[in-house]
Design a protein around this nucleic acid. Structure first.
Length: 584
RNA sequence: CUACCCGUGGCACAGCUGGAUAGCGCGUCAGACUCCGACUCUGAAGGCCGUAGGUUCGAAUCCUAUCGGGUAGGCCA
């Protein structure tokens, strides 16, 4: 695919060779030097010639002047030298013609860099803990992870989405005890994961109370103790040994939780390729521990087995507890080894909170020390923490918003508005789901993932300004216009105005934004592109009549531009987990 | 104490592989629809880019120091 930058870069490369007899810079290097001028009056592309000054041994002004006189092309209307900058303007009509015909011919694949063909990437994201609330804190990993999956698929990668469920650990011992004491099958069948959470919270409170009582009036340092805690450990140990009753309960808890998470995933249009959770890897850890021990990487420190990472300026990585049981890093290493064997990935992406950055840096290093040559294929993609309306998330104080509640609130608000326009209840429901959920997703994916996000309900559900509904509304508008005038139109030679050519330039920028989004693992690049495209289209739409345009050639061009916008918008919305309803 | 992340108009954020006059949205103020969907568009006010040095022809962007906020740091995940 020949982008404008590449084309201009090769023209410049040719001009440099002709006029300075130098080929020290390749077209690709020149393309990287090209930039977009701050003011469109200056041009559409610019080359600051300061960068060439040293290697060509001329002054920037001299270089710019020479190049300006040496470059001409049918797609370029003006090449001018201004204070050491080489400013290039495109000829709007032929440029737009090429962009739109690219979009028409490539359709759904327009914008794909095709860099992933024949490669596999596994993405580990969402990964909620069974029998714990699935709340707004999980939104980041879920939507960033899925968007990255879609982006990689778009680039041609074979993708494996893994939901690494938190489905193992001592919490299940607690849950089993709680269920046996206070639980009731039909209540849980009816109330789902919420009921499990209630049981879990209740037993944790009871254990804490017992522990506090146990040390009352005792000397300082007396170990805390609780009957329920003991019982829980015992039940978990039975579970580990394959006790049938406990295994059945555990399986059931997992199923009940998963069933509910699926509803949320369905709203987001997410499906995972694997739900192998922590439990799956329990029997795969000993081999890795053995390998570590054989390689002499393990040290015993205060009874625990660790890998010392002093040399890399990191705290020690704990592999085994004093009692010999495994830890988080152990399981992650075993999982990575398994996945490498199973999928032969070219890249393994983990999307988790930035709070876990050290943990990932540590076990990635351990994988390297173990001699696995794919250690550099592991990528941690962190994101900032979420607070709600300025306050931290806290289950205890009730400052949590469950994802299902968040989405139903959003859907309900859209329903209110949609009802007025759409009498058909079923259709109304579908629109409300895609717009309501889309509003939340768009809001979340609007900013740099590393920034801590303060989730403002009012802003997230707002319909004005740079929002999901604005983007979807713009898409619906393109559909509406095209329904009226038809989709089949090609660009003509009719001269274009500033709004048409601004739109064409924005459409042309899509491929490089996708490349950037992939390079930075940053879905917000796509979100921001969508806003740019919507703004360009809405300006065009407002100023230029499409259906009622009297000049038929111009009308054809405008229809073609609208169809191209429709195509690119649809692709882009999809890449950030948004639906694109044709009517709102 | 140590490491990482974030500090840009009242609010919430772009721009950060150095480049020409720092952008968008919300809010505020003033405008635009006999016209393809007004959930749209146009204009104005509002910022010495946390602070101080340094590198450079050129710094919001790179380096150093410092302040403020967040997160993590051996038996949780």
């Amino acid at each position: 695919m020949l982008t404008l930058k590449n084309k201009v870069a090769s023209l410049i490369a040719g001009a440099i060779a002709d006029n300075f007899g130098s080929d020290i810079l390749t077209a690709a290097e020149l393309a990287a030097m090209l930039e977009y001028p701050p003011d469109k009056a200056m041009g559409d592309l610019a080359l600051p010639c300061f960068k060439l000054s040293r290697s060509l041994r001329r002054s920037p002004v001299q270089i710019a002047d020479t190049l300006a006189g040496a470059i001409s092309d049918s797609e370029l209307s003006e090449v001018a030298a201004v204070n050491g900058y080489l400013n290039i303007k495109t000829e709007p009509t032929s440029f737009a013609k090429r962009v739109v015909s690219d979009i028409q011919s490539q359709a759904d694949s327009y914008g794909s860099p095709h860099t992933g063909e024949g490669k596999t990437v596994v993405l580990d994201y969402s990964s909620p803990n069974v029998a714990k609330p699935f709340h707004i804190g999980h939104l980041g990993t879920t939507v960033i992870g899925h968007s990255l999956k879609l982006l990689h698929e778009f680039a041609g990668y074979k993708c494996v989405g893994i939901n690494y469920l938190g489905d193992w650990g001592t919490q299940f011992g607690k849950l089993i005890v709680a269920y046996k004491l206070w639980g009731d099958r039909s209540t849980i069948e009816k109330g789902g994961v919420d009921e499990l959470v209630k049981l879990y919270v209740k037993i944790n409170n009871e254990i804490k109370a017992e522990e506090d009582t146990s040390v009352q009036d005792k000397p300082e340092g007396t170990p805390k103790h609780s009957e329920l805690g003991d019982a829980s450990r015992k039940e978990f140990s039975k579970l580990e040994q394959g006790d049938e009753e406990n295994l059945a309960l555990w399986r059931w808890f997992v199923d009940v939780s998963l069933e509910e998470y699926q509803k949320t995933y369905k709203l987001l249009g997410i499906e995972f390729d694997s739900y192998k959770g922590e439990s799956f890897y329990t029997d795969k850890m000993p081999a890795q521990v053995e390998k570590l021990r054989n390689m002499g990487l393990l040290e015993i420190d205060d009874g625990a087995s660790i890998v010392n990472l002093d040399k890399w300026n990191m705290p020690v990585c704990l592999i085994l507890k004093r009692d010999g049981s495994t830890l988080y890093p152990t399981r992650d290493i075993a999982a990575a080894v398994y996945r490498k064997g199973e999928y032969g990935f070219d890249k393994a992406i983990y999307v988790t909170s930035a709070a876990q950055s050290l943990h990932f840096a540590q076990w990635f290093k351990v994988v390297e020390l173990m001699g696995y040559d794919w250690y550099d294929k592991l990528v941690h993609v962190p994101y900032g923490t979420v607070s709600i309306n300025g306050a931290k998330l806290a289950t205890r104080t009730g400052n949590v918003i469950l994802l299902k509640d968040l989405f139903s609130e959003a859907i309900a608000r859209v329903m209110e508005i949609a009802k007025e326009k759409n009498p058909d209840e079923e259709q109304c429901r579908r629109i409300a789901e895609s717009v309501g959920v889309g509003a939340i997703v768009f809001y979340y994916l609007s900013n740099n993932r590393m920034r801590d996000i303060n989730f403002m309900m009012e802003d997230a559900l707002s319909f004005d300004g740079n929002t999901g509904p604005y983007a979807q509304y713009t898409y619906a508008r393109t559909c509406s216009v095209l329904e009226k005038v038809g989709r089949d139109a090609a660009m003509t030679d009719a001269p274009l105005g500033e709004h048409e050519s601004a739109l064409a330039k924005t459409l042309a920028a899509f491929p490089e934004r996708i490349i950037q989004a992939l390079a930075d693992y940053e879905p917000s690049v796509v979100t921001r592109y969508i806003l740019d495209l919507c703004a360009a289209f809405n300006r065009f739409y407002h100023e230029c009549s499409i259906a009622n345009c009297e000049n038929n050639d111009l009308k054809q061009s405008r229809i073609a531009l609208t169809a191209a916008t429709n195509q690119v918008l649809k692709t882009a919305l999809h890449l950030i987990c948004m639906q694109s309803p044709e009517k709102i």
